[in-house]
Amino acid sequence: MARDKSVVAVLMFDQAPLFEMSVPISVFGVDRSVTGAPRFTVLPVAGEPGALTSTGGVMMHAPHGLEDVATAGIVIVPAWRGATEQAPEPALRTLREAHADGALIVGLGKGAFVLAAAGLLDGRRAAIHWFHAPTLAASYPDVLVDPGVLYEDDGDVITSAGTAAGIDACLHVVRRLWGPAAAGAIARRMITPPQRSGRQAQYIDQPVPDRSEADELTQAMAYAVEHLDEVLDIEDMASHVHMSRRTFDRRFRSEVGISPLQWLLHQRVLRAQQLLEHTDLPVDTIARQVGLASAVSLRPPFHRFAGVAPQEYRNTFRPRARASEPTRADR
C-alpha cells in the first residue's frame, strides 16, 4: 500500500511526557484548512500493549495499533519514557519497515532514543535536548549527537530537542513538504514563530538580556529586514545602533543564538522564498532584490536553508501559491 505524506502516525508510549506527545497532534491534528493549511490524517498509535499513562497520571487511549503505521508517510516518535530503557522490539521493527518503505521518520526529544535503538540514526547527525545528549552519545556511539541545535534534518530522518523545539521540527516538516505559506498558516493559529532555524542554539548565555540591549538588537534586525534589497552587511547593522562590530556580534550571538551573518542570510532566503512563491520575477532579479549580486550568489545560502535550488523551489511551491490565491470573485 502506498504511503501518503498527509497521513501522520504518532507512536505513543507508557510513561512518556504528555506535552511532548501532544506536540505533533497539535500541529497536524487540527483542521486549519480554512487558513490555507493542508489537511492531515493523524493516527495516534499505541507503541506497546496495555494502558498508557502520561504526566500527572493522565490515562490515554490510542485508537490505532502498529499495523496502521503501514499507511503513514510520516511517522513521529514524540517522546520516550527513559533514556536508559530499551523500546519494545515490535515498535522498533515497525519504524525500520516504515523507513525502508519511504516514510519520513521524526524523533522529538527523547524519541531520538527510540530511533537510535531501531538503528535509524547510525552514522547520522542527531539533535536532542542538551541534558540527554551525553547519554545518547554514550549509548549509541555511531550516532553523531549535536546537543546545541533545535532540530536536525537528515533527509529521511529528522530529530529535535524536546518540548518547544518539537513544534519547530514539526513546522519544519510542513514547510519542507508543503511550503512556508502552509507552515505559516499553522504557526499563526498556534501563536508560535513560523520559522526558527534548526541551527539556532537550544539555549543562550543570557536568557533575560538587559532591556536596552534587546531593544538595540530589535532595532538592528528591523533595519536589516527593511533594507534587504541593499548591499547590507553586519557593520551596517552595528552602526545603525551605534555599536562596534565586535560588541554587536557578541550581543547578537548571546541573545539570538546564531551569528548575525547567519541570521541575515536566513532573512534574505526567506524573502527570496516569498518572491519565488508569489511572483514571476527571474531568479537573478530576485537575488538582487534580497541584496545579493546574482542567482549564482543566491544559490548556496538558499540551498543550505531550503534544501533545494531556487528554481526547483519555485517549481514545487509556485503552483500551490497560485492555487491558494483568491480569485477575482473572492476579493
Rank of each mutant, 00 (worst) to 15 (best):
A70P: 02
G102N: 13
A118G: 06
I167S: 04
D146A: 02
L150R: 15
A83N: 11
G73M: 01
L66I: 00
R124Y: 05
T135V: 15
A116W: 06
L108M: 10
A87E: 01
G109D: 12
V157A: 07
D156W: 04
T71D: 15
G82C: 12
G82P: 11
S139C: 01
A112Y: 00
V143M: 01
R124M: 14
I128F: 05
A91K: 03
L92R: 07
G166I: 07
D142Y: 06
L150Q: 15
L144H: 15
P63E: 03
A161D: 02
A87S: 01
L115Q: 14
P147Q: 12
G82M: 09
A118H: 05
V157C: 09
L108H: 02
L144M: 12
I74Y: 14
G155K: 12
P90Y: 08
E97L: 12
E152Y: 09
H64M: 05
L150F: 09
V143L: 00
E67A: 15
D156L: 10
A161N: 00
V69W: 09
V149N: 04
T159H: 05
L115Y: 08
S160V: 03
A83S: 10
H61K: 00
L120K: 09
G82V: 03
L136P: 10
A165G: 04
A118I: 06
D142N: 15
L144F: 09
S139Y: 00
P134I: 10
G102M: 14
W130L: 04
G65T: 06
V106M: 14
E67G: 07
L95A: 03
P90R: 02
A98V: 13
G107H: 03
V114W: 07
P141K: 02
E97K: 08
V106T: 07
D122N: 12
T159W: 05
L150I: 08
H61A: 00
D101N: 14
R124L: 13
T135Q: 15
I105M: 03
A79W: 00
G65S: 06
H132L: 15
T159G: 03
Y140T: 06
G155T: 12
R124E: 01
I158C: 09
T94M: 06
R124N: 03
Y140C: 13
G65K: 01
T71Q: 15
E85F: 00
G119F: 04
R93F: 04
I74M: 14
V145K: 10
H99P: 07
W80D: 03
V145N: 14
A161L: 03
P141V: 05
F131A: 15
D156Y: 07
A126M: 10
A112I: 04
G123L: 05
H99A: 13
P147K: 06
I74P: 10
V149W: 05
P78W: 01
D101Y: 07
A70L: 12
L115C: 11
G109F: 04
